[in-house]
Design a protein around this nucleic acid. Sequence first.
DNA 1: TTGTAGGCGTTATCAA
DNA 2: TTGATAACGCCTACAA
Lengths: 325, 325
Amino acid sequence: MATISDVAARAGVSTATVSRTLNGKSTVDPELAARVLEAAEELGYHPNGLARNLRRQETAVLALIISDVENPFFTSIARGVEDLAQVSGYSVVLCNSDENEDKERRYLDVALQERVAGVLLSPTGPATNVTRLRRLGTPVVAVDRPLPGTDCDQVLVDTRRAARQATRHLVANGYRRVACLSGPSGVRTADDRLSGYLDAVGEENAIYRRAEYRAEGARRAAGDLLDQPAPPDALLVANSTMAIGVLEALAARKLRAGRDIGIVSFDDAPWTTLIDPPLTVVAQPAYEIGRVAAQLLLARIADSTREPVTTTLDAQLIDRQSSHR
Amino acid sequence: MATISDVAARAGVSTATVSRTLNGKSTVDPELAARVLEAAEELGYHPNGLARNLRRQETAVLALIISDVENPFFTSIARGVEDLAQVSGYSVVLCNSDENEDKERRYLDVALQERVAGVLLSPTGPATNVTRLRRLGTPVVAVDRPLPGTDCDQVLVDTRRAARQATRHLVANGYRRVACLSGPSGVRTADDRLSGYLDAVGEENAIYRRAEYRAEGARRAAGDLLDQPAPPDALLVANSTMAIGVLEALAARKLRAGRDIGIVSFDDAPWTTLIDPPLTVVAQPAYEIGRVAAQLLLARIADSTREPVTTTLDAQLIDRQSSHR
DNA sequence: TTGTAGGCGTTATCAA
DNA sequence: TTGATAACGCCTACAA
């Protein structure tokens, strides 16, 4: 494990010169530089990022803490973040909090301890706490869900409006008993989607269930709804992972989407056009969320005095067959 | 950004005592310890992992470099790795090489520079080079695909056998012109799946195409195959991302899986039971791959003299409707 | 049990 | 332009 001083010794120069050569900072005599490069090559030298970061008090890595790696929505965000970060020379490490406060806290600690340059985070819920990170001056950007009680940059989707619109779409298509299957209470997107649904049908007509943002919970909740004496004739589903559970529940009861029960789901997962009938969805600009969030984070790293901004993107209803009789 | 000496000053002790207290190493007078803890709390002290790792020459983070975050197969591996690592106190950072040699090299560099404790890697192809990592003594475990020319731990799937078996399954079900759609040449799993297919049909009957491990390329390749004068009547598809493209190509031609063309795909993605007819798949134990790989890596971190082992897991054909007329 | 001091590998400051 | 040298924040002999 060759160090900078090994290289210096071999090249017959000081460590300072080696450092300068390797970082291309101030000018170095071409001949010395060549000797340094050669020595480094021969020794198989690789800079120790730990020492460098310790000295420089900065890192070129961003942490992206998402709440579910198995959800295509979040992996699209990840790609957006990554693509933008990469061109600025940052690398992105992805951490999966798995909708679990403990894991999230642990990764937040890692980010803190490793002194990453910045953190992008989709908070698991109201308990998420980034004050320690903030105290240290590490910039944080919230994606998909706001960070309660903190004034940091945020990239959100107007999900309440989208839910309202989707619900009205179902009503306009002749469904009379539209229900909603949303995520856990306290998760902002879940709350907002439910609110949008309520906006559209009114409190008095509300039929809804909450479950984890997972297939399994959604299957049970959908089953529960469908087995009521007066079951709903349409369903707004809060994300594509849940939609899988819902569709399984339908299949188990030989119910056909569209004809028997109207379905609209959030998130345009790649498989939604493959099923019969194709799923009407609310497409969120996930990749764009990632890009914008990374932009905001980089801007804040460059200038910590910027006013925090909240960017709200629009979702788009893609009308397919599952919402038509 | 309080340091250990700030805490020491405030508690009226030496930095050594603070360090010992915080790490619970040798015994410290309870009263002093209490003072230290209190001071740390008041100052909002958080250890600097960079400095600690530099000093200790070790980190508690593992890097997992996968070739496609958007492929459920790899995200399942990630969960397996994570679950196992977590109980041993390691955190896992996920890097997405995106089947791209440059990105992969970059993340390998990051892993090298950050001196992570170990690396898990699904190599993008034959150009993947981990010798620099190895020279530094960083343990590497290959997952899903072997690492050519290096004797490191590996966790693989007997994918050739699985492909052979899947092809025979199609033949046994009466399909006469079975084709294969595999991934890029040089990617070991793609080569092996093609080989398994060839084992079953024989070189002389072979009909196959290669494309990227992506929906888009698969759609084109499948279209090309289907538009031949004498198109195949069955298709073995090398992964679930490609299957999406294939199914799109079928839909565009009003072809029905099973009846018109038999389909078997690798990877039991969550949506495969939702489509009509349900997709017959080769299920790989992705989560298990991740767990085993993490075990191997941890074992090697603990004892670098261990002989490298290759663990080969079995895949399982799940017979559903798309492979029946 | 506690403190002093040296060093992990870099970079940045300051003279020369 | 180059080279000593002092940090960066932490841990750990070694000494007290």
